[in-house]
Amino acid sequence: MASKVRVETTINGEPTEFLCEPRQSLLECLRDVLHLTGTKEGCNDGNCGACTVVMNGALVTSCLVLGPEAQGARIETVEGIAKGNQLHPLQQAFLEEAALQCGICTPGFLVASKMLLEKNAQPTEQEIRLWLANNLCRCTGYDKIIRAVQKAATQMAEVKA
């Protein structure tokens, strides 16, 4: 058996260390080694976006990242979005707009939408749809998700003003 490697990384701001086999994906490391099960597996080949996390400031599908690649990286997952019991405006809007049913796609949509709003605080519907094209949802039909992102954007702008 290939020996395990030690990986030192930062997850949601916390310095974190784990052991993994090189063939384990970052997704498997998050879920099975670190028990951060918020990040979901859908397709395991880069198409569905359920496993989306932020790595060194870029959105990535964690099923297409090898565990050892996290060495020295900064990783942000869905677990880092709420502040304690205080939901992020996106999470609140997803609940209010019923933008989830089974919820498997939701962590990926939240992580991706959060980055969109950080880059573009007032995206158009077209911009939201294009940005989220890497995230599939088999339940909601997308419209509710788009509405939730728009609502969160509006609320975040009001808080700032």
Binding site: G49, A58, L59, A112, N134
Partner: peptide, 9 residues
Amino acid sequence: IGGTAIQGR
């Protein structure tokens, strides 16, 4: 090329 999370890599 792909979507945003593919372009990240």
